[in-house]
Amino acid sequence: MNFDVGLGQYYESDSVIHKLDPRTKLFFVIVYIVAIFVARDAYAFIPLACVLVFAVILSRVPIFTILRGLRALVFIVLFTAVLNVFWTSGTEASMIFQYTVIPDTWTITLYWEGLYNAGLLAARIICLLVCTTLFFSYTTTPIELTDGIETALSPLKKIKIPVHEFAMMMTIALRFIPTLIEETNKIMNAQKARGADFNNGGLIKKAKALIPIIIPLFVSAFRRADELATAMECRGYRGGNGRTRMKKLKMHLRDLFWFLIPVLLLAGVILINIYGNGYKL
């Protein structure tokens, strides 16, 4: 069985994008997302998409892999697009066609605005998804990401926010996801061997069938947590104070470049919003 879940889609390579400091990636993604949502002009998506394509090429992650990652969201993109097509109203002039389903109560009208909206929304979702998966999962290991978050948020320690503890919890959670999935499978098999039926019956019956899985899983998770805590104590863990790191995060010149790109992009998007004459969302 293959347990590659969620964040485990790391694509091994030593490209520029892979080598970026995780903090730079965090900054890039956040500003990029803001830019995506600020963009109202259709032309604004041209620079947004270009930067993304540029990043994808530099990262050496095969396009095919990224497209495969998008597959899961095809439904959501189509669904929101279809909703937009039919629920956006426009002017008499921009009407494409009208169809009366039930006279005087239900007519379907299709406007150009609806098509534009749907297109731009789809573009937004795709940009958002490609950007986050490219920077956070294909080119960054979970541990780099949590390290990045920990160091980026470390000023918050001053106001007593337990940043280190949160990062540690995230690391441990990531570490135990595959272990617990394996365990769930084992328990399910054990219950099946005792005659449990997980596949038949209605929703309530199916939900009830999960109880004999969830309870042993919880019990064992607590036992694991207890053992892990003892093992961590034995290895001298006593919180974030006085702790050093093997890999120190270091900013390079290239990080500056990738800090500037999203800022310029955001500025550009705002300018296009104001002065551009493409279709506005």
Partner: peptide, 20 residues
């Protein structure tokens, strides 16, 4: 139940990191 990190070398580093 005694491996903390998601990468082998990071886990080995856990002890010495705690020692400062």
């Amino acid at each position: 139940n005694q491996i903390v990190a998601t990468v082998v070398e990071e886990d080995v580093a856990f002890g010495p990191e705690n020692l400062g």
